[in-house]
Amino acid sequence: MAYAYLFKYIIIGDTGVGKSCLLLQFTDKRFQPVHDLTIGVEFGARMITIDGKQIKLQIWDTAGQESFRSITRSYYRGAAGALLVYDITRRDTFNHLTTWLEDARQHSNSNMVIMLIGNKSDLESRREVKKEEGEAFAREHGLIFMETSAKTASNVEEAFINTAKEIYEKIQEGVFDINNEANGIKIGPQHAATNSTLSGGQGGQQAGGGCC
């Protein structure tokens, strides 16, 4: 379980756009048509490989309901990447993107990589938002863009991994200060092998202390 980097992601967007389903598809490779409303935030994690390096994605899947906004905003801080999700079958979710984006930019670090995701691409017949609109919005706001389907798993991996690649590139470019954990990036244990044996029960405490 040793990793070179840990990236913190947040998934944001209107309620019902499929944030939790995207996460479930990415972490568990399964689709759950009926999903409980997310309360506050839920979590997922997965290991990916970029440039031969093991990177752990720690994903904070936030509640989309307006009433939870004040709470979920608290969780934006310290995220290296954000998946801003809308539903291609519901134009209102696309229309709210500006608010979400403002919120995200305001409550997170300026270098946060944002991936715009038009989800439910499998429901072509019910499409309300054209792919070009999404691309245009992304271009305008400097985001990466992808259409995905949590149901068919189309582009789900890519969405998460491309975001990680972007973050990784920014690290290489020196944009991210990897020593500042407020950027949502943690460096993995230097001597992973020895550390995992050495720390034993301390591990939890160390990690716990790390987030204080």
Binding site: M1, F43, A45, S196, S199, G200, G201, Q202, G203, G204, Q205, Q206, A207, G208, C211
Partner: peptide, 12 residues
């Protein structure tokens, strides 16, 4: 490894 397992269960 307790710490790792605790993390895996999203405790952290």
């Amino acid at each position: 490894h307790y710490g790792m397992l605790f993390d895996e269960f999203q405790g952290l």
